[in-house]
Design a protein around this nucleic acid. Structure first.
Lengths: 201, 201
DNA sequence: GACTTTAACGAACGATCGTTCTATAAAGCG
DNA sequence: CGCTTTATAGAACGATCGTTCGTTAAAGTC
């Protein structure tokens, strides 16, 4: 890795955790330059524009999400165990990746949902990719016979994303120590409702 | 209402819908002055600081939420019907109140969850008030015999907030036309699980 | 209608914003 | 080593930021 790539990564690291706290939209080149002990222009040259830097942060976030949430879950047996692992990783990934503020993309989703442009498009792409991944895991759980064959996959994914967001808000804004437990309870209720009916009763 | 209060309300109206699109944090006095055809200093004088303006927007949002979501629901019979009405109003209130972007407070919750200060405190207050209101409605549903007596009220509230957020994200970012239907399905599943068991079977 | 209070303006402040340009230092390569 | 490419710094740009001040016009009061 050349010198350029190297410092670019240093910048991105800092931008990533800063964006986690103040939001991608509030990132500023001046502040970022100060934090990385660089000149504004030197830092700027690595991206060419502020928007490109913001896009890089969003892409970085997706990459780390894949590493911290999806990939480890693939080691679990396919079907429900894997889905469960994915959700568990997801709920805690901001801790694992040392993100001081919440998930960058999730915050960006609320920030840019009414501002058309490349940033919104990138966030949208990330959300869709996540839903696809979750949907795939659910489909596997159906195929493995862990969930009913008439399971509405998108409905399940919809509800899981709801659980995630409720958990984050409870934790981050309301300091609710029970958030994790509530998330589990919600998910187990979900699984119970969609589980294949037992032969008894 | 004196002249002062009057223009203050005009400013607040504009700030409210602008904040809905770009976020409370991105509000700018210059832009707001332009939109209301006022001078920066003239507008500024009504609030004394930008933060005070932002707080006023958050309070305005709470007031409108009460008018559009909570109050109409109080006309429904207490218990499950009222809770159902509340959720229905909630899911659509940004349309009813003519909010171009999503709910101001919900967006602010994601924006300020890591930035201590009066703004975060105000958002927190609003979220807690909402959860209290929802909790009260659920408790009534239990008292009326619509839901099981051992219902975990906070758990139910938790899950309802999840449904709301999933719905907003699906609608606003993913343009999912089925979001409303999915929200209903999730809520009905919730109610079914917590309903008093029928005497049969 | 005279007087007091309040609302609004216009100009200016220092700070920061993203960006551009030119120059210098470092890195990569033969 | 010498040479080319790349990375970084520094200064400056116009724009916008939130805020302050002094002044004028309007609203409210008796």
């Amino acid at each position: 890795m050349g010198k350029g790539e190297q410092t670019r990564q240093v910048i991105l690291d800092e931008a990533f955790s800063l964006a986690s706290c103040i939001g991608v939209g509030a990132l500023s080149i001046g502040v970022l330059a100060e934090r990385t002990h660089m000149s504004k222009s030197g830092l700027f040259a690595h991206f060419g524009s502020k928007e490109e830097l913001q896009l890089a942060v969003l892409r970085e976030s997706q990459a780390r999400f894949g590493e911290a949430v999806v990939r480890p879950a693939l080691r679990e047996p396919r079907g429900l165990p894997r889905l469960r692992a994915m959700l568990a990783n997801w709920l805690d990934w901001t801790r694992a990746v040392n993100l001081p503020g919440g998930c960058v993309i999730n915050a960006a989703a609320a920030e840019f949902d009414d501002q058309p442009g490349p940033l919104r498009d990138e966030v949208r792409k990330a959300l869709i990719a996540l839903r696809d991944t979750l949907g795939e895991a659910v489909a596997r759980a159906v195929a493995e016979g862990h969930l009913r064959s008439d399971t509405d996959i998108e409905q399940l994914v919809f509800e899981i994303t709801g659980i995630y967001q409720a958990t984050q808000q409870s934790r981050r804004m309301l300091n609710d120590p029970d958030a994790g437990r509530r998330a589990s309870a919600a998910f187990e209720r979900l699984v119970r409702d969609y589980a294949v009916p037992t032969e008894k009763e």
